[in-house]
């Protein structure tokens, strides 16, 4: 069963002079096991939207249903929330326990899992995100490096075995290698756990590389949802809406502007490679 978001509206500081509509009539369905990317300008409502998936915010109007559980209902919300693992931006700042293992186990312990089993699951989760349990288990989370902290925080979410993994800018503040590492970890988690992934990111390259479907938010409204090829194949649409395009698209645009006959929909490296080889094979001048 999917997450169904229907006509979701959210206003911050309702009723005051500072009221602000952060989401307007957003309707979207997130299917089992899919990888949905969420892009949009800063302030477009991405973080607001993903917090609704976990019932951390309540709709001003409209509804969010996670596998049939209505997130507006207090009892159903508790059950729905267990299905959705939410990783906030800079999740490393939520670490608090004495040891990494204890911190990772926090979520499952809250679910009522007995201590021994919780610790076993913590080990498992740490291994999944690439933190060797025997090395990191008894370390203080505050002794870890930035990247390791982020992994530990990620482990703290997936230890609950969510059916949907929601990540709000999981790569913010990491270097290219660290970004790649986290992305690979996310792919690995999806493959081993079979969970759906909803990822917010400002990096179009990462999005184009990993997402299967992309939703574009602009000033609180859902501008467009489509397959990754459909959205990123339409560089004009992205640029018109003030969004960035993947680097390959930018290169393709620049080449086309100089008269190189490349198709308009190129956004991925392998496509570019293929197209260029084709052109060269035909003996075109570049």
């Amino acid at each position: 069963m999917p997450i169904v978001v229907e006509k979701l509206n959210h206003a911050y500081m309702e009723g005051s002079t500072l009221a602000h509509d952060a989401l307007k009539d957003v309707t979207l369905t997130i299917g089992d096991g899919e990888f949905l990317g969420l892009i949009g300008h800063t302030g477009s409502g991405k973080s607001t939207f993903v917090q609704h998936l976990n019932g951390l915010l309540q709709p001003t109007s409209g509804s969010v249903t996670v596998d049939g559980f209505d997130m507006a209902d207090k009892k159903q919300r508790v059950q729905g929330r267990r299905l959705v693992g939410m990783v906030f931006q800079y999740p490393e700042y939520q670490l608090f326990e004495e040891t990494v293992a204890k911190d990772v186990a926090f979520g499952v312990k809250n679910m009522g899992v007995p201590e021994a089993e919780a610790m076993a699951r913590a080990d498992e989760a740490m291994a999944l995100v690439g933190l060797a349990p025997e090395r990191f288990r008894d370390k203080s989370p505050f002794e870890l490096s930035g990247g390791e902290k982020r992994r530990a925080a990620l482990a703290g979410i997936i230890v609950m075995r969510p059916k949907y993994l929601v990540l709000d800018e999981p790569m913010a503040g990491l270097d290219p290698l660290g970004r790649r590492d986290i992305l690979d970890t996310i792919d690995h988690l999806r493959a081993t756990l079979g969970c759906a992934v909803v990822m917010v990111s400002h990096s179009m390259d990462d999005m184009a590389d990993r997402a299967e479907r992309v939703a574009v938010l602009s000033a609180g409204t859902l501008l467009r949802v489509g397959s990754t090829a459909e959205i990123f194949g339409d560089a004009k649409f992205l640029l018109e809406n003030g969004l960035d395009v993947p680097q390959v698209s930018r290169l393709a645009l620049a080449l086309r502007a100089r008269g190189v006959a490349l198709p308009e929909t190129i956004y991925a490296m392998d496509e570019m490679e293929l197209a260029l080889c084709n052109l060269l094979g035909k003996g075109a001048e570049i």
């Binding site: 951390l56 929330r81 906030f88 939520q94 979520g107 809250n110 979410i157 609950m160």
Partner: peptide
């Protein structure tokens, strides 16, 4: 922000007696 992040990990700040609630604030 931190409260939301811990709530997403199943922390419960609303139920229980005063001691439980105080303890639940540690995270």
């Amino acid at each position: 922000k931190i409260m939301k992040a811990q709530m997403a990990r199943g922390a419960d700040f609303e139920s229980g007696n005063i001691f439980r609630r105080a303890k639940s604030m540690i995270p």
